[in-house]
Computed example of a mutant assay.
Amino acid sequence: MRIGIVPFQEQDHDRLVEIWYEAVRDTHTFLTEEDIDFYHQMVKNGALDEVELWVEQNENNVPRGFIGLDGTKIEMLFVDPKYHGKGIGTRLIKHAEAIKGGNLQVDVNEQNEGACAFYKRYGFVRTGRSELDSSGRPFPLLHLSKTEASADER
């Protein structure tokens, strides 16, 4: 039985895509159906393979959330909406800090106010902004960083 945060297992791929989809529909209200379909295809067809994935599972080994890392950069963090507010995102960030150190970065959609507030609570501060997302679409990104010093100040 794998309980807690574990490395990605290929058999969990479809469940992670499902978590991504449900979380995006719940939190990315600024996206159109066409936008969601565009990104959904990317996630289904390889985006998860581009990052180091860690998955939080329940006692039945069912994924509830995941974080994707590229070095010290958080490329994705999604939690099943049924478990929002239950500490999964917090545990995933703490796991990233434990394995990568306290200097982390993340890009977050400017329109995703919930995510902006979430990262701010954990000591991330704005270091820049881009008008377009990484796919060249008109969804501004805020570039956020967290240093070990900012973690100590909390």
Rank of each mutant, 00 (worst) to 15 (best):
L16M: 07
I74H: 02
G136R: 13
E50L: 10
V51Y: 05
T29F: 09
L53R: 00
G102C: 07
G65C: 02
L92A: 02
L92D: 03
L77R: 08
W20P: 06
H40M: 15
E52S: 04
P81Y: 10
T27H: 10
L69S: 15
N61R: 11
K94F: 03
M42S: 11
T72Y: 05
K82E: 12
S134L: 11
A96I: 10
G65I: 00
G89Q: 05
E33Y: 11
D35Y: 06
G136K: 15
E10D: 15
N112W: 09
T29Q: 08
K86F: 12
K44A: 08
Q111K: 14
R25E: 14
A117S: 09
R121M: 04
S135R: 15
G123L: 04
T29G: 12
T90S: 08
E50N: 08
Q9T: 10
G101D: 14
Y122F: 13
F66A: 04
V17F: 07
L77V: 13
G89E: 00
G46R: 14
H95A: 03
A96H: 04
V17C: 07
Q11Y: 08
V24Q: 06
I93C: 06
K120C: 05
V125H: 13
F66G: 01
R25K: 14
V62K: 08
N109C: 04
E33S: 13
E34W: 08
T27G: 11
G87L: 07
S134Q: 14
D26L: 15
L31S: 00
K100E: 11
L132F: 14
G87D: 03
G123D: 00
F66I: 06
L92T: 03
L132N: 09
T127L: 11
A47P: 15
D70T: 07
K86H: 15
L16F: 08
P81I: 08
Q9V: 05
V24K: 04
K120S: 12
I99W: 08
G123K: 00
L104G: 03
Y119D: 00
Q105S: 12
E50K: 14
F78R: 03
V79M: 05
G114H: 10
Y39N: 14
D12A: 07
V106W: 05
G87R: 04
H40C: 05
Q105E: 13
V17N: 04
F8N: 01
C116R: 14
K73W: 02
Q111W: 13
Y83Q: 02
G71S: 10
